[in-house]
Design a protein around this nucleic acid. Structure first.
Lengths: 337, 337
DNA sequence: TTCCCCCGTCGAAGCGCTTCGACGTCCCGC
DNA sequence: GCGGGACGTCGAAGCGCTTCGACGGGGGAA
């Protein structure tokens, strides 16, 4: 293994000079820097991560806690993860993958052993048991999602409440008077998953504000469940003309189920969804939807962490404004319906 | 921060004794060990990962390279990743997440800086450009997937060739004489993705061996593409009664498309698939399938790596035998068809 | 009884890097 | 012409841990 002293000798300088040339923490003459860089290249020098971490008390590694709970849509999680890794690399950091299974002990472990400099936590619950720990930890963290009491914590996410509202507003604007939210599986709400709850809040608030008849239906993510919920909605709410879907795998089978029951989308029924754009755009009937900007959220979460690591002030709460893309699943309510 | 010397003082022993009590690399009397453990608990001691890595030249971190290429099924990748993390933790290791985007340079970086002790590489291509690098690296690695020339490398995967064969044998056994493989998107084959290629090999070999009429059709993963390929198959091969699907997101829309074209599954058309069990089992028509044992592969990949790290001999090639689960999508060929 | 070896523990020497204080040199301003 | 910065570099002191050699004491073999 080639070490910093080898480079120093080869370049005819001291090890500290090599270190400074590399980090830029002290001025080094252009000529010396050139020579050092040339030696590094020649010798194929790579600083030893452990030694660096020990001496600088910075590991340049971020922890990312990913959920593997039932009811969450895997591709979205993966997109987050990939965007976090990509963004981290731009800041010369790597990413350690933790599963939620490891729980609080896992967080404490990687933080206390100085394996990581900071943490990113996904799938936050309204009353997440990890919050006190994150507050107490001596390393900065960023939550992707908003708990009920986010004080003292840095959080970022799509504004899911506004997203729920926007879906309803759009349907109301098209003249629909009876709307339903078909949501994530029940266990997601039982756990108190923050983003799911907030969609419901927004949906309900906007429906009330607009004087709409509304109902909320958690739903399993299977074609059979789609069929059942569609039948039930038609039976219990014959006047229904607007549906908001917040359940990725259910979107396609649900639309199919409605059509098989004789409802044309969007002629008889307008559908909006909160889901990744790739999903909404690639269906047989492209669905008007609010995108989940995973890549942006992941990237910005890393940026926030970097600011905290550098001591730069940064906002505690970042709510991204939802943006709706109009597709073929929405239409004005026809007089007949 | 509480360090090993603090523990040593508190327990009335030397730091090295604490170290040995922790690692078990030298005999320590039961009584001393107890005392040390008590001190560790009392003080909340956690060994510093960087210091440990520097002194022992072991970081206890594994690198996992995940693909984010088009055409690969995300949930399967995620399952691999989670099972790798879980298995790694059982061996007291953590997992660093690398994206394929980082390429060879990324592999070299984490290996040469001693950030990781070993590497797991997914989504291997038949002529993967990373192979020479992996062979040259001074850290052990395991490939999930088999390249064309795996010599000198440790590989593990489902035996996809056998899986392709098994699908055909099953259909042949049911009396089907004309079969088709609907595969992954074309770019997957163009890249030379190993597992996709091997399925084709197995499919073709078994079809020839059984004297079947067969054809292979790469296919995009969209409902529209499903519809097109179904129409085309019926047009070009009216005698078709057996289909093998190796394309997760396409499975459901494809079955739907066949039925909408008037073919009943399994009465008129038998379908088998190679995909995760959760997918095959939860369709409207549960599909007879060969599972992709992601969790097992991930876990065993880690086990292999641990053996290599410990210097224990281990097999170079591990091919898992495919197992078919009979469901409702296969039936004997009826005389009429 | 003597010798040897093993058990349990200690002290010290690093592992490879960063960082702090120090020191000479050069240049600017007065 | 002289004092004082700023610049560029060096040496040494750790960062917290593992590991190697050494050593005293006790027990078994001869």
């Amino acid at each position: 293994m080639v070490k910093i002293t080898d480079v120093a000798r080869h370049a005819g300088v001291s090890p500290s000079t090599v270190s400074y040339a590399l980090s830029g923490k002290r001025p080094i003459s252009e000529e010396t820097r050139q020579r050092v860089e040339e030696s590094i290249r020649r010798l194929g020098y790579r600083p030893h991560a452990g030694a660096r971490a020990l001496a600088s008390s910075r590991s340049n590694v971020l922890a990312l806690v990913v959920p593997l709970r039932a009811g969450i849509h895997v591709p979205v999680v993966m997109q987050f993860a990939v965007s976090v890794v990509t963004a981290a690399r731009l800041h010369d950091h790597d990413v350690l993958l933790l599963t939620q299974e490891e729980g609080e002990e896992g967080l404490r472990r990687v933080a206390d052993t100085a394996l990581v400099d900071a943490l990113i936590v996904m799938d936050v619950q309204l009353h997440d048991p990890r919050l006190p720990l994150l507050r107490a930890l001596d390393r900065p963290s960023v939550l992707i999602g908003f708990p009920a009491a986010p004080d003292g914590l840095t959080c970022i996410d799509l504004d899911f409440k506004a997203a729920g509202e926007l879906c309803v507003e759009r349907l109301a604007g098209l003249g629909h008077r009876v709307v339903a939210l078909v949501g994530s599986p029940p266990e997601v709400y039982v756990r108190g998953t923050a983003f799911a709850q907030r969609v419901v809040q927004g949906f309900t608030a906007a429906a009330d504000r607009n004087g709409l008849v509304s109902s909320v239906h958690p739903c399993e993510a299977s074609p059979a469940a789609a069929r059942r919920i569609a039948e039930r909605l038609l039976r219990e709410q014959p006047a229904l003309t607007g549906v908001v879907v917040h359940n990725e795998p259910l979107l396609e089978p649900l639309v199919d189920a409605f059509e098989q029951l004789g409802l044309r989308v969007p002629a008889d029924l307008s559908v909006t969804a909160i889901c990744p754009d790739e999903l909404a755009g690639n269906l047989r009937v492209p669905v008007t939807s609010i995108a989940i900007p995973s890549a942006e959220v992941g990237g910005r979460a890393v940026d926030l962490l970097m600011r905290k690591l550098n001591g730069t002030p940064c906002p505690e709460a970042t709510l991204l404004t939802p943006r709706m893309t109009e597709r073929s699943s929405t239409a004005p309510r026809t007089l007949g319906s």
